[in-house]
């Protein structure tokens, strides 16, 4: 008889404990956020921080300047080496892995390619890279028309390929 009463009480107590362990966290979470569903489900500070960080990914914040005084040309190899200064206004570091641009020079189409394996862009700092292309005439002091191209950048193992001028 005592056993039976004890079993019933124990059974009821354990069932109540199970219900409390499920209900309490939900009630406490809502109570901590003033019963606001959105705030309880997700803390918006983190989401806002991510949005701010990723919204900086705009290539209008990057400035590319050809250093015309430093262009090198090899008559024997018909090769020009064009230095480019890049200023990154972005808020995070990233790497440029590839640059390929189709250019037009004196009626000829020339492919300009990045010489370096990678160029690291540090926030709000200048970086330098060189484009190489085959020119049958010395391009220094003459107009080179840039056409379409592609830039490949890498950040945290994510590779982004951007086709420009299309």
């Amino acid at each position: 008889m005592v056993h039976m009463k004890g079993e019933v009480l124990l059974g009821a107590g354990l069932r109540l404990l199970s219900i409390l362990l499920v209900a309490c966290p939900i009630l406490m979470a809502f109570q901590a956020n003033g019963w606001d569903l959105r705030k309880t489900l997700i803390e918006e500070d983190g989401v806002r921080e991510i949005e701010e960080k990723l919204s900086g990914l705009s290539f209008e914040d990057m400035t590319w300047t050809v250093l015309e005084n430093e262009i090198e040309y090899s008559e024997s190899a018909h090769e020009a080496k064009i230095p480019i200064n890049i200023y990154s206004g972005l808020s995070f570091q990233m790497k440029i892995l590839e640059v390929e641009i189709e250019a037009s020079f004196e009626g000829r189409r020339i492919l300009l390619e990045m010489m370096e394996n990678e160029v690291v862009l540090t926030p709000r700092e200048n970086a330098k890279m060189h484009l190489r292309g085959t020119f049958y005439e010395d391009p220094r002091g003459k107009e080179i028309e840039l056409g379409t191209g592609r830039i490949v950048i890498e950040k945290l193992g994510v590779i982004m390929e951007i086709r420009v001028g299309e």
């Binding site: 362990l21 966290p25 979470a29 809502f30 956020n33 309880t40 803390e43 983190g46 991510i50 990723l54």
Partner: peptide
């Protein structure tokens, strides 16, 4: 995401009570 943690109060409390439940 990009080094920033996303938190949820509801998930935090549910996981805490799951921990307590296993310990009990």
């Amino acid at each position: 995401v990009v080094g920033i943690q996303i938190h949820s109060t509801l998930v935090r409390y549910i996981l805490l009570f799951a921990k307590i439940s296993f310990l009990i």
